[in-house]
Design a protein around this nucleic acid. Structure first.
Lengths: 348, 348
DNA sequence: GTTAGCACTTAAATATTAGGAGTGCTAAAA
DNA sequence: TTTTAGCACTCCTAATATTTAAGTGCTAAC
């Protein structure tokens, strides 16, 4: 639907309605808007405007004699209106929150798991929505060290530590004829040559090199290649989600149906991971309101997501998931500030 | 409350009432019981019995003209009645479930995480309650290999693999003066001497030995001891919980209040972990009904838990968490059978 | 001890009513 | 042309009856 030009007053009325509905989830009446938001026209005028806005698909009337409720389109309009300004704002309360968070994060700088757990919990605490964080993509980080551990004859456990101190492991079906000795040599070789290198690059280079140099595992080369291939590829799966208990207190989720949706969303984390994988490439906060969501299952929710970075490299995403009737202003401020805090901590 | 002697008919009536209420969560009337469970007395007689049972604290009447609802004490009585017999039972359906589970588990035998995830998911799937599993306590397993990885000057990451193939890691604040070289020696020393040994024993022995032999890290001994101490102690924290979405479909959790309790239970996993830690020492299925729970927060729920073992050594616990109005018969059969299946898989 | 019969209780379902918030329309005013 | 005042109309909500049905407890007879 293309964007209609709205005159200044109409815009103000629309924003007022959204604002009011966010504050209290009840259909908004013309008289209420007029008084509460200090419009200098009478309610009938507001009524006319509201009628127009309904024709344009911004408002929706539950029944003839009720007030109006914003549609997704209205939320989008509202968000576009306040977005830029909101990024510059920072209430005293939020400033305080951020300061305390930054302190905590600094202490946890070397323990990524705690760091992100703290972040999501604080996010949820501050908003009562779900707080999420997608860990740095392994591919975007650098290898700190790799180890191969022979396990039970025909398995190899690859333990990878990246430069963020995140430990990942993978059980790989392997071949009995490979010895721990040989695995040690392999690890030594990889560590010596690729410590501090990005995983992307390692994968590209390692195979070429292994084949070329052949070393002394000559006969095992094919098998070793296979092990390395698996050991160096990690799919994205580390998504932290906090605040289910918090979100259950919102009136928007007072119906069990809505909670089921949330439970399903949490259970099927891969949907959210997919969604965030794209966003982590972006440079700015991204806001997805209801119907805008590419995944149908998430269309009853709104999502505010922001990438966090190390220096200028985007690593992952933190986000809020809440009802469409979300306090966007506050949510945007918080996600923005939290992402900055996280970025600062990681860039230090 | 001590156990009153009930005559045979009274017992039957009580069990019938519990049975009926489990099937359908509505206060049970005398006429219904008489007809449905084929009692050869008239409803007034049943009524008298019910009145007695209420006096004894087995039943509760929501209001004067309503039927009766079982109390926790009634559930306990019911469970004690059916327990022994239930352990011998096995419906065709459950047999099938177990066969399919056992097949799946066998394939996952070398990947504990997937193994337990599968177990809890299947448990929940089959019952619509929450399926839980507490991973084998590290202390009860044996060391497969340990590695110390220097990280960022003053940290050491200890990576421990146990004989179940479970990888755990710990970030330890350490001392800049320790080099990776020295850490390698230490790891080599531990691996050479303690591969296959139980963690309990290692901790006891290692410190004595390190001090005695002193080796060549002489000056660093205090620091190394501290690292080892931390590296070899893992608190229990790996609890799998599946089925939040399932449990939301039960009528018992159709009120948001009850769901909040569940959400809180899931969030505060340490409570459940504490509870299960004790049970894992037991030898048999343990059933905790409502008020019996040592933790107040869990007293609106019932829990069926069974240890699973390797050979004869109890490793951890699997469990179901559901409403007090639980299908105990089915739940007991399933937990029992699942634990056996898991034990078999781990003992092979 | 058990049963039939009946009066009584209570919640839940249904119907009825009153109240109020809010609209849309019209005609007059700006 | 836009805005306003006025008013009839709509429809929800909450409060209040009314009815219904399930189930009890009690009594007196078996």
């Amino acid at each position: 639907m293309k964007n209609i030009m709205l005159d200044e007053r109409t815009k103000k009325v629309l924003c007022a309605i959204v604002d009011s509905y966010i504050e209290k989830p009840e259909p908004v009446g013309s008289r209420y808007i007029m008084k509460k938001y200090g419009f200098d026209v009478c309610s009938a005028t507001i009524r006319n405007i509201m009628s127009d806005l309904e024709d344009e698909g911004f408002l929706f009337q539950p029944h003839t004699s009720a007030g109006r409720v914003p549609t997704d389109r209205a939320y989008r309009f509202y968000v576009d209106c306040i977005f830029k300004e909101t990024l510059k704002l920072q209430s005293a309360e939020i400033k305080k929150l951020i300061e305390s968070l930054t302190k905590k994060l600094r202490k946890l700088r070397n323990n990524m798991n705690s760091l992100f757990l703290e972040t999501t919990q604080s996010l949820s605490q501050a908003t009562k929505y779900l707080g999420l964080a997608l860990l740095p993509e392994t591919d975007k980080t650098a290898l700190h060290r790799i180890d191969f551990i022979k396990f039970k004859d025909d398995f190899v456990i690859a333990v990878v530590v990246n430069d963020k101190g995140i430990v990942k492991n993978k059980i790989i079906r392997a071949y009995p004829e490979i010895t721990q000795q040989e695995l040690n040599s392999l690890a030594e070789f990889v560590n010596a040559n690729y410590h501090g290198k990005a995983f992307d690059d390692i994968r590209e280079d390692l195979f070429v090199r292994l084949k070329r140099e052949k070393l002394y595992w000559d006969k095992l080369i094919a098998k070793i290649l296979k092990i390395c291939q698996q050991a160096l590829y990690f799919s994205r799966e580390d998504l932290y989600i906090s605040g289910l208990y918090n979100i259950m207190h919102l009136p928007d989720f007072s119906h069990i149906e809505r909670l089921r949706e949330i439970a399903k969303t949490i259970q099927d984390r891969h949907l959210l991971i997919k969604l965030f994988e794209n966003i982590s490439e972006d440079d700015e906060i991204k806001i997805i309101i209801g119907e805008e969501n590419p995944f149908e299952e998430l269309r009853s929710l709104s999502i505010i997501a922001s990438p966090y970075k190390e220096k200028d490299k985007s690593l992952g995403v933190i986000a809020l998931v809440g009802p469409k009737r979300m306090d966007y202003q506050r949510a945007i401020m918080l996600v923005n500030a939290f992402a900055k805090s996280l970025t600062d901590t990681l860039s230090e």
